[in-house]
Nucleic acid binder design. Structure first.
Lengths: 104, 104
DNA sequence: GCCTTCTATATCATATTTGATATATTAATA
DNA sequence: TATTAATATATCAAATATGATATAGAAGGC
């Protein structure tokens, strides 16, 4: 795994406190993290073009802080919430599938 | 929404006890349910070709009953677990993206 | 019939994720 | 600079998801 990718993953506190901890991520765990980050980034791009975090939150009965966390790749945010948020921005299953398929 | 799809969704107790309850699903909620069902079905197909539920469970530090629920579209199963299970069967992000993109 | 393997169902204590709230920070603009 | 809008961070009680365990069915071979 290359340095750039590692830094990208480590950036937001993704489970790691040290490099060796990081290396203990199985391949599957690491892919899962990348899927979350990809959804997170895409959500932010979509949402910024359309509305504020507060507006999106109200559309999906969530809260602005939760949207902020979702867009910043916070580890406490589930894939479920990321997908619900994408859908609330008008994303289709095709859009979402494409984001996930684009990982790696 | 057509009858066939409704029956498919209602089949496993998806939030509904009555038709009117069902109709209270927003478009987004309904898409989310369909994404889960699509992942669920695909997981079952993949897993059956490769291993038992017990084997898959141990590969991903889960339990056989949880895999059974995942494959049967139980409402208590998160998208996260479905994707972790797919990955444990060797599915790639492309495989997963394709399943989601295939919804609707 | 019995035995074995696989899958489904039920229960439950624990862990994670949630929206809400308060508040801090940042950005833009008058 | 002061004001405002937008976003980020912190905390927390409630809701949801979790793996574990026990056990029941189902399907097949003997």
């Amino acid at each position: 795994m290359d340095q750039a990718k590692r830094e990208r993953l480590v950036a937001k506190g993704w489970k790691v406190g040290s490099v060796s901890d990081f290396l203990d991520l199985t391949a599957e765990e690491s892919i899962l993290v990348e899927i979350k980050l990809a959804l997170s980034q895409n959500l932010k791009e979509r949402r910024q073009k359309l509305m504020t975090q507060t507006e999106l939150a109200s559309k999906m009965s969530s809260s602005q802080p939760r949207i902020a966390k979702a867009e910043n790749g916070d580890t406490s945010v589930s894939i479920e919430l990321l997908i619900r948020a994408m859908l609330a921005t008008g994303a289709t299953p095709q859009d979402i599938g494409q984001v996930i398929a684009g990982v790696r």
